[in-house]
Simulated assay, not measured.
Amino acid sequence: MNSTYGIRNLTRRAALVVAAGAATFVLAACGGDGGDKSGSGHDAHASASESAGAEATSGAHNAQDVSFAQGMIPHHRQALEMARLAEGRTTSGAVKDLAARIEKAQDPEIKTMTGWLKAWGEDAPGSGKDMDHSASGHSGMPGMMGGEDMAGLEKLTGRAFDTQFLTLMVEHHEGAVKMADVEKSKGRYGPAKAMAGDIVTAQNAEIGEMNKLLGKSRG
């Protein structure tokens, strides 16, 4: 009796262990399925996001975006040329600081816009001698200085330079703001429209700053 009972007891325990193991396996399998489904959904979402991001980066530009970049590059380059004239000509710390900030902000933007044009298979305005030709070719753009203005600015120093530099740069900035406003309203490429917004904000602030400096110099 005891021997038989012991065998039955062992058999029952073994059955319970097997059942418990089976239950654990089922739960693990269910958990795994749930994890796989969640992972699959996440992967699908990530894939869709990557696809959307690639589409936003690669395409989504129009003729206005191209025109904005091709026009703003020589416009910025002329601003840099003007800003670099300040070194050795101005005696104003405020003008030196402003010129340095203009150069720091606009030089990277030129490189960015050049990259866009190359990615779009469009011609990018050159630099150096090509820059002078490009600038003269875009003299009809808002705020662009003519050759006589630039030559006259080069000959000035001190207070006379500061007054002429600020006067011309205000006009130049106002032209850039007009060009950027057109891009904001008619452009399609997100990064270009964002840059246009930054240009409007930054250059409007500098216009206010320069007008204050002109007021002091004229006072």
Rank of each mutant, 00 (worst) to 15 (best):
residue 119 A to P: 01
residue 162 D to L: 04
residue 2 N to D: 12
residue 125 P to R: 14
residue 125 P to C: 12
residue 89 R to D: 00
residue 114 T to I: 02
residue 82 M to V: 10
residue 192 A to V: 01
residue 48 A to Y: 10
residue 173 H to W: 06
residue 7 I to M: 08
residue 1 M to A: 07
residue 205 A to I: 01
residue 195 M to Y: 03
residue 167 T to Q: 09
residue 162 D to N: 02
residue 84 R to I: 05
residue 126 G to M: 07
residue 98 L to D: 03
residue 4 T to P: 00
residue 178 K to L: 10
residue 189 Y to V: 01
residue 195 M to T: 01
residue 88 G to N: 02
residue 181 D to M: 09
residue 137 G to V: 11
residue 161 F to Q: 10
residue 80 L to A: 07
residue 201 T to P: 09
residue 172 H to D: 09
residue 60 A to C: 06
residue 75 H to E: 08
residue 205 A to T: 10
residue 67 S to N: 09
residue 180 A to K: 08
residue 140 G to W: 05
residue 148 E to F: 05
residue 129 K to T: 10
residue 75 H to K: 08
residue 150 M to S: 13
residue 186 K to G: 13
residue 163 T to I: 07
residue 18 V to K: 11
residue 146 G to P: 05
residue 96 K to I: 00
residue 167 T to W: 05
residue 144 M to S: 06
residue 157 T to E: 09
residue 71 G to S: 15
residue 30 C to D: 13
residue 103 E to Y: 08
residue 162 D to I: 09
residue 118 K to T: 13
residue 216 K to D: 13
residue 87 E to H: 13
residue 54 A to V: 09
residue 64 Q to Y: 03
residue 63 A to R: 12
residue 198 D to T: 13
residue 177 V to C: 04
residue 20 A to P: 03
residue 26 V to R: 11
residue 106 Q to Y: 01
residue 12 R to K: 03
residue 63 A to P: 01
residue 167 T to F: 04
residue 11 T to F: 10
residue 107 D to K: 12
residue 162 D to P: 14
residue 216 K to G: 01
residue 17 V to Q: 10
residue 60 A to Y: 09
residue 184 K to H: 10
residue 60 A to S: 12
residue 70 Q to A: 08
residue 214 L to Q: 15
residue 138 H to A: 06
residue 198 D to F: 00
residue 174 E to Q: 15
residue 154 E to D: 08
residue 83 A to L: 01
residue 124 A to L: 10
residue 176 A to H: 02
residue 176 A to C: 10
residue 169 M to L: 13
residue 138 H to Q: 08
